[in-house]
Amino acid sequence: MHEKANAKALVINYEKCTGCRLCELVCSVYHNGVSNPAKARIKVEKWEWEGLYIPMSCRQCIDAPCMNVCPVRAISRDEELGRVVVDHNVCIGCRSCVAVCPFGAMGFDPAERKVFKCDLCDGDPQCVRFCDEKAVNYTEVSRESLFRKRDAAEKIAQAHKKSTELISEMLD
């Protein structure tokens, strides 16, 4: 039962998020045929007074708390797509998984009395497809940290450039 080496996940680069919430809209239209962010599997959390926008979605955990807490084993891992899935035929709607998810990624639809979560749109995530900014990406999990490395390195590179400029000024 090992994760496929090239399994992909949603990789979020929050700095690129413009806060437009198109991801929430397309998610609810794709899954439910309605516009309703309350039913979207992705949500942009905002701190508007400082302009911070952070998209939040399921991390598809390996040792998933939702899976572990489920009393009827309705939640399992789909190793093919590297995702955690809910079997709605088994789910009793107890919301234990909602309570335990550390990322708030499990939703509950009171009308349907069902939990819902990101299913990676069976391999073609609509949030990724519609995000022009590439704030939400569908990438091999092994590459997730490469973005961060590059971003952090860029800051060091800039600082280096500045310091050499400063030194050459001093030498003048």
């Binding site: 700095e15 413009t18 806060g19 437009c20 919430r21 198109l22 809209l25 926008y53 022009d132």
Partner: peptide, 15 residues
């Protein structure tokens, strides 16, 4: 603010 400083209104990709 930073390199990515543009923001958008609801469902807009022009930002």
């Amino acid at each position: 603010f930073g390199k990515y400083h543009m923001a958008g209104c609801f469902a807009c990709q022009v930002h």
